[in-house]
């Protein structure tokens, strides 16, 4: 007698899995708040945050450390990690390629050119120069790749991938050129940006990118049943009732926009967008109705933990967070790959 049960892929279990990951995210935020050069006990932290909610902000130095240094940085790390996890998952489905990540189509290098221009020219624009110009760089790259890949109103995924890789390597060459021409002082800033840096976090940046990322992910979530069908191939998806060309364009634009927003405030934090969707796949399989929100929440926790390690492990020196994401992520990923056979 055949019995079919929704298993992981019913609405209830999606809500349960997401609730579990949300709890993990909250725990990561709370524990990350406890780490730092200044020793502040968890009880004090809870009191400070409650005070913050009540409007009694910035009474003493501990308030300042928690509410205007650690908390915005942790929240930004969470948001960026979530954005990269979600957009990585989308790029993997769009390109039908498990190796895809948010940067594969060159958005990061376009953003980098913008950021390096600002760093080397010294045009800071009150701290907004780098985010602004890297966002512009990202958007220009995104349009360029889209324009190159578009032929006869159709987007061929292989062409898109090739266009992205080509544009990416072109901008990488430009980055190398700019690096070799820049002075020692600028160089460190550039390297930190290229490896991802959350040190300049504040609430303004958070508020600036939050709408892009949140709205983008919510709209993408509505497309998750269509994304599932795209995994079968474009003809098969069309056959099952998906308007493939329109769906691909929307996925490309939204995932690119989310990536551009993330990259513009914190540089190129690698590995999160590649590894987080695969971690979720290996745990829970390939249904995007679960995979997308789970990658979003897990990406957030992962980057919060990685950034906490980056800023505390050899304190007072801070490591670029991208170094930590790769060093922590790789062994865990290899372990998952070895214990589970399917992707």
């Amino acid at each position: 007698m055949l019995r079919l049960t929704p298993g992981l892929f019913g609405l209830k279990s999606v809500l349960k899995c997401c609730a579990a990951l949300l709890i993990l995210l909250i725990l990561s935020v709370l524990s990350a708040l406890c780490f730092g050069p200044a020793k502040i006990s968890p009880i004090e932290i809870v009191n400070i945050i409650r005070g913050g909610f009540a409007g009694n902000i910035l009474r003493d130095s501990k308030d300042v450390i928690i509410l205007s240094i650690r908390l915005p940085r942790i929240m930004l790390a969470g948001l960026i990690g979530a954005a990269l996890g979600a957009s990585g998952a989308i790029f993997q489905a769009l390109l039908r390629n498990p190796l895809a990540d948010p940067y594969i189509l060159g958005i990061s290098s376009g953003a980098a050119v913008g950021a390096i221009l600002v760093i080397t020219s010294g045009y800071a624009a009150g701290g907004w120069g780098i985010p602004l110009f890297s966002f512009i760089g990202a958007l220009l790259t995104m349009s360029l790749v889209f324009y190159v890949a578009k032929a006869r109103q159709m987007i061929n995924t292989n062409t898109l991938l090739l266009a992205g890789v080509i544009v990416n390597s072109f901008f990488s060459a430009i980055i190398m050129l700019m690096l070799s021409l820049s002075s020692g002082h600028d160089l460190q800033g550039i390297i930190y940006w290229l490896m991802g840096d959350l040190g300049a976090a504040d609430y303004h940046k958070l508020a600036l990118i939050l709408p892009y990322i949140l709205l983008g992910v919510i709209i993408l979530y509505l497309y998750t049943p269509k994304i599932n069908l795209l995994l079968l191939g474009e003809d098969e998806a069309a056959q099952l009732g998906v308007e493939v060309e329109r769906t691909k364009k929307i996925l490309y634009l939204l995932a690119s926009l989310i990536t551009a927003a993330a990259v513009s405030v914190c540089g190129i934090i690698g590995f999160v967008g590649l590894i987080i969707p695969h971690m979720v796949r290996l745990m829970w399989g390939n249904d995007y109705r679960l995979l997308l929100p789970a990658s979003f929440f897990l990406g957030g926790s992962f980057l919060i933990i990685a950034d906490t390690i980056a800023r505390t492990i050899i304190s007072p020196v801070e490591l670029p967070v991208g170094v930590v994401t790769a060093i922590c992520g790789t062994p865990f990923f290899i372990y998952l790959l070895r214990t589970r056979k399917v992707l």
Binding site: L4, G7, G233, L240, G285, L343
Partner: peptide
């Protein structure tokens, strides 16, 4: 089908309900 990501039989059949 050529799949790059693993899907099980139940998932595939249910996709017909899309």
């Amino acid at each position: 089908l050529w799949l790059n990501f693993s899907l099980n039989v139940q998932q595939l059949v249910l996709m017909g309900r899309y």
